[in-house]
Design a protein around this nucleic acid. Structure first.
Lengths: 367, 367
DNA sequence: GTCGTCCGGGTAAACGATTACCCTCGTAAT
DNA sequence: ATTACGAGGGTAATCGTTTACCCGGACGAC
C-alpha cells in the first residue's frame, strides 16, 4: 500500500469501528502518515479550517487578527504544509495546470519556445504539463481530452493540427492559445507568432538582391498556416519579380531533417540545379546541407540555403545557414499576457487577439 | 465566471433555495454546462454511480451484467464522458501524473530522453508533467514540493542536484527515479544510466590508441556523479598509461556551449597546445569547436575533440565530433520497467535497482 | 423448508479544500 | 437602553469519484 494511502485507510477503518476507545483513536490519529492536511494546520494553530484556508489564500484578511495569521503561518511552516491540489481543484473546478502541446520536443526551436513558456507559466504561479503530439491529430486529441479532465487553465497549442478533438475542445470553453501556427479554418483563438508571409517575402527579396535567377523551395505541410504562409509569401514575391518557381523546383517535406535530405535529393537530381533553396525550417535545411556536401557543392558558395526558425544551435554549428530568426524567447511573455487577459475583464478581446512577434532575417555567409 | 464554474454555482444556488419549484430545478439542471459527470452517465444508463465507476475502472466485473455494461459504455460514449482527474485523485490519493524534472530542456540530448520517457509514460497510462530545473537546487526544490502536492506517482529526476528539498522528498515516500546522474551521497534510489567511468576510460583508450601524447579535458560539475565518474575514468586511464593530465590541461565547465567555448579559450592559450580534448558533453565540445576554428585549427586534424552524449544532431551537423553515444531512446523503456516494478510486489528491489544502459563510442573523423 | 452463497446492483461515507452563511462579541450611534 | 454594525471566526455543504458495506432475489444442498 503506498504510504499516501495509509492515512485515508486509517480514517476509513476508524469510521467503521466507532466503538473503538479513545486510545485507539488517538493512536490512529498519531500513526497516520502522508502530507499534513489543512486540518492538521488548523488544529496546530488552534483555529478552524476556514480560517486557515482564508489565510493561505490571502482572502478576506479582515476576518483574521494579526495574531491568528501569525499562528497559522507558523503552523504551516512547521508542518511544511502545502495545500493538496486535488482538493482545491475539485472544489474550485480549476487547477494550477497549463497544458503545453508541442509537435516535436526534440526540435531545439520548439523546445526553446517551451523553455520560454515554462518560465512564464511558473511566474504566473502555474505548472506546465507538457505533451508531445508528434504532429499527430490522434495524439493531439487524446491529450486535449486528457488535459480537460485535468481541469487545465488553458491549453497552449504549439503547431496545431486540425482534428475533431480540437473542435470539440474549442467548443467546451477551455481557452486555447495557438502558438506559431494559427487555428485551423473555422476556428478562432488567440495567436502568438510571426507574420510568416512577410518573412517568406523577405527571403525572396534576399534571393532577388543576391541576383539568384533560379530559386527553389522545400516547404512544410501546407495544412499548417505557418508553412503555407511563409511559402506563399516567398512564392508570390519571386513571381512578382519575374522569377516564378517551376514545379520541379518545389518539394514538400515534413519539417524533419530526413525529409529535408530526401527533398534535396529530388531537387538536385536534374542536370541543372537551383542556385538557392528556401527550406521550411532549419531542420530541413540541415538535411539539404548534407545532400549538398555529398554532391560536393559548397554552401553558400555553390548553393545558398535559407532556413526558418533560427535554431539556437545555428550560430555554433550551422554558420553557413541563413535563416529567419523567430524570437523564441518572446513566446513565454506573450503567452503570459494572453493568459492574464483571458482571466481578466477583457477576456473577449483576448480570445481573438493576435500577437505578432518581430522576426529578423539572419544572413550567414561563412563556410 | 469561467464556464466550468457555472455548474457548481448553479448547484449551490439550488441548494440555497430549496423552495424553488420543480420547473426552476429542471431548468437549472438543463442549463448546467461543463463536462458531464459520472452522475450524468449513471442517469442516462439508468444505473447508480457505483456501477458506472466499477465498469469504467474495469473492477468487479462480476457485479455487472453484460447488458448493464453495454448500457453504461454507450452512455459514456454518447456523453463523451471522461472521469475528472481531481475527483479521482482526491478519493484515491493518487494521480495519473508523473513528474519529469529536466536540467535543460533546450539541450537536445536531454529532450531526446524526455521524448523517450514521455512515450513510455503515456503507454503506462500516465501523463507527464515536465519541469525545467536549470540545474538550480532552489528550482528543483520548488518543483519537488509542487509535484508532491499534485500527488504524482513518481518523480523522474534527470540530472539530480543535491538539495534539502530532495532529501525531504526522498523521506516522504514518493518514488524518485534518478536518470543519468545518480542520487546524491547518502540518498539512494533506482538509477538509469550508463557506466560513466567505463565510458571515460574508453575515451582515454581511444586517445592512447591514436598516439596522442598530450591530452586534456573540459569536465562538467564534479558534484554530478555523471560528470565526475566520466572524468575520473578518463583521468585514471590516462594516468595508467603514463599520460597523466597536467593541471593546465584541465578546465571545469557547466555543460553549456558558452562554458565550453570559454574553457577552450583558456585551454588553448598557452604556447603549446594539447592534441586532444575530452569534453564533458557535446555542447561544451561545440563551444570548443568554435574556438578551434577561430584559431585556425583543423578538427580533428590538428586537434581532436571528443564529446559525450551523442546529441542527435551530431550526425548531421557535427560530423567532426567523436563522442560517447548514450542510448537516449532506452531511458523511457527502462523507466517504464522501474515504474512498474515500484508498483509491484518487488518494490523493495526496484527501489534500489541500477539499470545500466549500454554506451557506444562513436568515432567521427570527417572534416 | 432452511440455510448458505452467489449475482447484480444500490447507498452513502469518505478524500482535502473552499466559502456561503451563521454566531458572538464589542463598540458606537441613536 | 436599544439598535446597528463590523471584526473575528466557526459550521457545514459541496466539488466528482471510489468503494466498503448492505440488500434482495435466485438457486443448490441438506
Amino acid at each position: 500500500m503506498p504510504p499516501e494511502r495509509r492515512r485515508a485507510v486509517a480514517a476509513r477503518e476508524r469510521a467503521r469501528a466507532p466503538e473503538a476507545e479513545d486510545a485507539a483513536l488517538s493512536l490512529a490519529a498519531r500513526q497516520r502518515v502522508g502530507p499534513p492536511t489543512i486540518d492538521d494546520v488548523a488544529q496546530r494553530a488552534g483555529v478552524s479550517v476556514a480560517t486557515v484556508s482564508r489565510i493561505i489564500n490571502k482572502k478576506a484578511f479582515n476576518k483574521a487578527s494579526a495574531d491568528t495569521i501569525d499562528r497559522v503561518e507558523r503552523a504551516v511552516a512547521e508542518l511544511n504544509y502545502r495545500p493538496m491540489r486535488a482538493g482545491r481543484a475539485l472544489r474550485t473546478l480549476e487547477s494550477h495546470l497549463v497544458a503545453f502541446l508541442i509537435p516535436d520536443i526534440t526540435n531545439a526551436f520548439y523546445s526553446a519556445i517551451a523553455h520560454s513558456v515554462e518560465i512564464a507559466i511558473r511566474d504566473l504561479g502555474y505548472a506546465m504539463i507538457l505533451c508531445n503530439t508528434e504532429e499527430s491529430p490522434e495524439l493531439q486529441d487524446a491529450y486535449l481530452d486528457e488535459m480537460q479532465s485535468h481541469l487545465v487553465r488553458a491549453v497552449l497549442l504549439l503547431g496545431a493540427v486540425d482534428s475533431p478533438g480540437l473542435r470539440r475542445a474549442a467548443a467546451t470553453g477551455v481557452p486555447i492559445v495557438y502558438l506559431n501556427r494559427k487555428a485551423p479554418p473555422g476556428l478562432s483563438g488567440p495567436f502568438i507568432g510571426i507574420d510568416n508571409a512577410a518573412a517568406g517575402r523577405a527571403v525572396a527579396e534576399h534571393f532577388i538582391r543576391q541576383g539568384y535567377r533560379r530559386c527553389s523551395a522545400i516547404h512544410g505541410p501546407l495544412g499548417s498556416s505557418a508553412s503555407r504562409e511563409r511559402f506563399e509569401g516567398y512564392r508570390s514575391r519571386l513571381e512578382a519579380a519575374g522569377l516564378a518557381l517551376e514545379a520541379d523546383d518545389v518539394q514538400a517535406g515534413t519539417l524533419t531533417i530526413e525529409s529535408g535530405y530526401g527533398a534535396a535529393v529530388a531537387l538536385l537530381s536534374g542536370r541543372t540545379r537551383p542556385r538557392a533553396i528556401f527550406c521550411g525550417n532549419d531542420l530541413m535545411a540541415y538535411g539539404a546541407f548534407r545532400r549538398c556536401r555529398e554532391l560536393g557543392l559548397k554552401v553558400p558558395g555553390d548553393i545558398a540555403l535559407f532556413g526558418f526558425d533560427d535554431n539556437p544551435l545555428n550560430e555554433w554549428l550551422a554558420t553557413w545557414l541563413s535563416t529567419i530568426h523567430v524570437p523564441h524567447d518572446r513566446f513565454g511573455p506573450a503567452a503570459s499576457r494572453v493568459l492574464r487577459a483571458l482571466g481578466g475583464a477583457d477576456s473577449a478581446d483576448a480570445a481573438s487577439a493576435h500577437i505578432l512577434l518581430p522576426f529578423r532575417p539572419v544572413f550567414r555567409e561563412s563556410a
